[in-house]
Design a protein around this nucleic acid. Structure first.
Lengths: 190, 190
DNA sequence: TATATGACCGAAATCGTATTTTAGTCAGTT
DNA sequence: AACTGACTAAAATACGATTTCGGTCATATA
């Protein structure tokens, strides 16, 4: 049996997207890295965006697996949420592809990239939403709107991790866990 | 005594910045509206940016006054914070100048405008920080880092008011007050 | 003579167009 | 039947010509 060209293409494209971003990787480039004629790419993927989606969908799946992994403990709920969210956001710093895309979305506003980031955010929110709904059912936390709660938790995390350090020393993982506990779970009331 | 040219210039510039934004107002334009020679502007302001700062500083002062006004009640602390923050963020929707600048900062990234938005955010945070510190002193709320708390509250508000409605029906003023109370003050723990 | 002005300047932005790049196709090769 | 890469049309870019604009200063005015 001959080599799996589809896989070669995916690997090549992943490499190129990671290194140059979406806009700056050309289909010729991908074909060359994959050692494949350009036309061949189009027998597997309708267009550049579909190839991109294939790769980013795997990425999102992987992030869910990582989060799910962090969630499987018997710690208190807020600690589990913290670990899951932290894991997901850590991903951005560890994987070249997400770093590049995050940057490209912010500074070049490439539409295809913006859409992916949107999908990524939605994916995280729907994942957390599910967990919140389960926790409410199990009576682990108070009644609340699960989607809104997931949304608030994610925004809080992004603010604490990315926005805060634009003007201050970065917060440690433990700081952030404490803050999530303090603000969202325990509350400031006496 | 002759007319107050400085004031004429400030009024003209405010009009023009409100209507066209920072980048698109020219010094010739301002001079014309103010009925003043262009050179005259430079006898009062070192350059375009200093004129802009003069105007945006008044804006920030006005916003503080509006917030302070909302704060002078004897409601519970979270309700006062809510009123103050809501008042500040409402400002953006009511005043042409802030709308224009907000938009220009987002979509054109004009550096001078970005700086002003940054100062504006800092102004809000330091104002809220002060209030939080006082509330801690008076024993109205638990011990916490006042700046971080102010930061979290502002980010939460911006997320609830501006980000949430990009994908959902907007939240009402009462919804938002409830959410601030629920998440930041009471907490989700049982 | 203190204040105000607008013609003027160089730098920067914008515009128009020639040139290059690139996503996607398809006739031909293996 | 699977694969290829030369080809095309459209989009992006590079670039020089032109315009715009912030800031200055010699002159005018009161």
């Amino acid at each position: 049996m001959s080599i799996d060209r589809r896989q070669l293409i995916i690997e090549a494209a992943t490499k190129s997207f990671s290194q140059f971003g979406y806009k700056a990787t050309t289909m010729d480039q991908v074909a060359k890295i994959a050692n494949v004629g350009k036309g061949t790419i189009y027998t597997f993927f309708k267009n550049k965006e579909e190839l991109f989606d294939e790769i980013t969908n795997s990425l999102i799946r992987e992030m869910k697996v990582a989060a799910e992994d962090a969630f499987q403990t018997d710690l208190p709920f807020y600690e589990k949420v913290h670990r899951a969210l932290y894991r997901i956001l850590e991903y951005r710093l560890e994987h070249q592809l997400t770093i590049k895309l995050f940057q490209e979305g912010r500074e070049m506003r490439t539409p295809a990239v913006m859409e992916v980031m949107e999908r990524l955010e939605q994916g995280i929110i729907s994942y957390i939403k599910e967990k919140v709904a389960q926790a409410v059912d199990k009576g682990e936390i108070k009644e609340c709107n699960p989607e809104l709660t997931a949304f608030v938790m994610l925004k809080l995390y992004i603010a604490l991790i990315f926005d805060w350090e634009r003007n201050h020393d970065p917060l440690t993982k433990e700081d952030i866990a404490k803050l999530l506990e303090q603000y969202v779970f325990k509350g400031l009331s006496k």
